[in-house]
């Protein structure tokens, strides 16, 4: 697992104590498209596209926006350097 993926996993584990957590680096699916190449050049890393699936009691009673905001806040540092981020967050 790459450096960024590892950081995402560690931060989310610490913040939400998830019952399920999957951090998928999907950068390879996008290799070669304009955004991905520009990204690699700009950030010196090919880790650019992530999909995160997370289940945690912490998301109980939170709206969709609130769940996304909570996750993005924890990952603020990573959000600055990655090109694409998609999230499936729910209580559980």
């Amino acid at each position: 697992m790459g450096k960024i993926a590892t950081a995402i996993k560690e931060k989310l584990t610490k913040a939400f104590n998830p019952s399920q957590l999957e951090v998928r680096d999907e950068s390879h699916k996008h290799a070669g498209h304009a955004g991905a190449s520009a990204h690699a050049a700009e950030h010196g890393s090919s880790e650019s596209h992530f999909h995160v699936i997370i289940r945690s009691n912490a998301f109980e009673d939170m709206s969709r926006l609130a769940k996304h905001r909570a996750v993005m806040e924890v990952l603020a540092e990573e959000m600055k350097t990655i090109h694409a981020f998609s999230l499936d967050a729910d209580a559980g």
Partner: peptide
């Protein structure tokens, strides 16, 4: 909100693509 796209309905922010 750090990502794009962003969608607004009647001035209210609804979310991005996942939402």
């Amino acid at each position: 909100w750090p990502t794009i796209p962003q969608v607004f309905v009647k001035g209210e922010f609804i979310g991005g693509c996942d939402i």
